[in-house]
Simulated scan of single mutants.
Amino acid sequence: MKYLEKASLSKIFIILFHIVGFVGFSLPHLQDFFISLVPFHLLLMAGILIANQKEYNKNFWLGISFIAVAGYLVEVVGVATGKIFGFYVYGETLGFKLANVPLLIGVNWVILVFAVGAVLKKYFKHMRTLKSAVAAVILVFIDFLIEPVAVKFDYWSWQDSLIPLQNFIGWFFVSFIFMRIYYELEFRKSNPVALTLVISQILFFIGLNLTMV
């Protein structure tokens, strides 16, 4: 019962924070304040997701650590070379940067991989490669929604102000590798708030895209 209560409260928090965030980003006089809260929002969502994991073992923590570090390092290489996602630079919205990449970008990868991974866990049983490919497509779709918002609010910016096709191709292959590793690690992947978090993020970015039309 306590576990269900925690999950229910967590879902309410996720939905409310995304609604409040949408309102804040939509109103010009509140935008600067809400932009300053983006790093805290990412940490909060990651904390809620991890807190609702049904059980913890060394493989779970190994997965969290690997995705966070690898996600950050992929972005470091991507920013430095332009060979993974194209040529882009990070702005100030995501907070403290090391090697020109916000440390929190690794947290963002954890949120996306572990949330989408948990949502798809019961589908395509024993077909981890197919499941990883489907998850990667979903992550590319989420990135497609994020990109215009990210550029407008100084998450990052692209060379010549154009989002290249290479970005989405790179996202697919990086996401596929991360998802494949996620499904290969043996731990219980059930998470009762994962679907709420994924849907909230998708609706949040769809809504912001519509306000920018």
Rank of each mutant, 00 (worst) to 15 (best):
E5V: 05
A7D: 12
A7L: 06
S10Q: 06
I12W: 07
I12M: 08
I12C: 02
I12A: 12
F13A: 15
F13R: 02
I14M: 03
I15H: 03
I15L: 06
I15T: 12
I19T: 09
V20L: 15
V20M: 11
V23R: 02
F25T: 00
L27E: 10
H29S: 07
L30I: 01
D32E: 14
S36M: 02
L37F: 09
V38C: 03
P39F: 07
F40R: 04
L42M: 06
L43Y: 15
L44W: 04
G47Q: 09
I50Y: 13
N52V: 13
Q53D: 05
Q53L: 04
K54G: 02
K54R: 15
N57I: 01
N59D: 07
N59F: 10
N59W: 13
F60I: 00
F60C: 00
G63H: 08
S65F: 14
S65G: 13
S65C: 03
I67M: 02
Y72D: 05
V74N: 10
E75L: 03
V76I: 13
G78R: 07
V79R: 03
A80Y: 11
G82K: 04
G82F: 02
F85P: 04
G86D: 10
V89Q: 13
Y90N: 00
G91K: 08
G91P: 07
L94Q: 12
G95T: 03
G95K: 07
G95Y: 15
F96W: 13
A99F: 15
N100S: 12
V101D: 10
L104P: 08
I105N: 10
G106C: 02
W109I: 02
V110S: 06
L112Y: 11
F114T: 07
G117P: 11
A118F: 15
V119Y: 13
K121L: 00
K121H: 05
K121M: 02
K122V: 00
K122L: 00
Y123E: 08
Y123A: 07
K125P: 01
M127N: 14
R128N: 15
S132T: 02
A133H: 11
A133T: 06
V134P: 12
A135V: 06
A136T: 05
V137P: 09
V137Q: 08
I138A: 11
L139R: 04
L139W: 12
D143M: 09
F144L: 03
I146G: 04
E147Y: 14
E147P: 11
V149C: 05
A150N: 06
A150W: 12
A150Q: 10
V151G: 05
K152F: 05
D154F: 12
W156L: 03
W156M: 04
W158H: 04
Q159S: 12
D160S: 14
S161T: 01
I163R: 07
P164N: 01
L165Y: 15
Q166V: 06
N167Y: 09
W171G: 04
F172S: 08
S175P: 06
I177Y: 14
M179E: 05
M179I: 04
R180W: 15
R180P: 02
Y182P: 04
Y182M: 00
Y183E: 04
S190H: 08
S190I: 10
P192R: 01
V193T: 11
A194M: 13
A194L: 11
I199M: 06
I199K: 05
S200D: 08
S200H: 09
F204L: 13
F205G: 01
F205L: 10
G207D: 01
L208Y: 14
L208F: 13
T211K: 08
M212G: 01
